[in-house]
Computed example of a mutant assay.
Amino acid sequence: MTERETFVAVQRNGDGDLTSFQTSSGRVLNYTEAVQAVHNGEIAGVNTFKGKNGGTYIRGDADGDPSNNLDNLPTFH
């Protein structure tokens, strides 16, 4: 089995919301693509959940390590 990718960097919009993700293999995924990759089991360390507004969101697995939270990842351009 191929080793799953991880998210290593993010892009944010003007409101600070995550909009794109860079993976450990260098792929750049927009939010919709990232949600699909998580659903497909391609990305390790994250999961998706349905928000109160019905949208699907990505969050890091609760592992007690704040350094790998999505909000703490570096940004890329």
Rank of each mutant, 00 (worst) to 15 (best):
Asp15Trp: 11
Glu42Pro: 06
Thr2Tyr: 15
Phe21Met: 02
Thr75Gln: 13
Asp63Gln: 02
Ala62Leu: 03
Met1Ala: 15
His77Asp: 05
Val46Gln: 06
Ser67Val: 02
Asp15Asn: 10
Tyr57Asp: 10
Gly54Tyr: 01
Val38Ile: 12
Val8Pro: 00
Asn69Val: 09
Asp65His: 05
Ala9Thr: 00
Asn72Gln: 15
Glu33Pro: 01
Thr75Pro: 02
Ala34Cys: 09
Thr56Asn: 07
Asp71Gly: 15
Ser25Met: 09
Asn53Ile: 10
Lys52Tyr: 07
Phe21Trp: 08
Gly41Arg: 13
Gly41Asn: 09
Gly55Asn: 12
Leu73Trp: 08
Phe49Met: 03
Thr19Phe: 03
Asn69His: 09
His77Trp: 11
Ala37Met: 09
Ile43Asn: 00
Gly64Ser: 00
Asn40Asp: 15
Val10Asn: 04
Gly60Asn: 15
Ala62Gln: 10
Asn69Ile: 01
Val46Tyr: 12
Ser24Arg: 01
Val46Thr: 14
Thr19Met: 03
Gly51Lys: 15
Asp71Val: 14
Phe7Met: 03
Asp17Gln: 13
Phe7Gly: 06
Ala62His: 13
Asp63Met: 06
Ala34Glu: 00
Ser20Pro: 02
Glu42Val: 06
Thr32Asn: 07
Gly26Tyr: 10
Val35Asn: 10
Asp17Trp: 11
Pro66His: 08
Asp15Glu: 11
Asp61Gln: 14
Arg12Trp: 03
Phe49Ala: 08
Gly64Arg: 01
Thr48Gln: 13
Glu42Arg: 05
Gly45Pro: 01
Pro74Lys: 05
Glu3Ser: 10
Tyr57Ile: 11
Asn13Lys: 01
Arg12Ile: 01
Tyr57Ala: 08
Ile43Gln: 02
Thr32Asp: 01
Gly54Leu: 09
Gln36Phe: 10
Glu33Ala: 11
Phe49Gln: 03
Thr23Val: 05
Asn68Gln: 07
Asp71Trp: 12
Thr48Asn: 13
Ala9Asp: 00
Val28Lys: 11
Gly16Arg: 03
Ser67Glu: 04
Gly54Phe: 07
Asp15Pro: 03
His77Ile: 10
Leu29Pro: 06
Asp63Leu: 07
Val38Leu: 12
Pro66Glu: 15
Phe21Tyr: 13
Val35Trp: 07
Tyr31Ile: 06
Asn13Gly: 05
Ile43Ser: 02
Asn13Ile: 00
Asn72Asp: 12
Thr23Asn: 07
Thr32Arg: 07
Asp15Gly: 07
Gly41His: 13
Leu70Asp: 05
Asp17Cys: 04
Gly45Val: 08
Ala37Arg: 06
Val35Asp: 11
Ser20Lys: 09
Gly60Gln: 15
Asp15Met: 13
Phe49Thr: 08
Asn40Ile: 14
Val38His: 09
Asn30Val: 04
Pro74Ile: 03
Met1Arg: 14
Thr48Ala: 14
Asp63Thr: 03
Val8Asn: 00
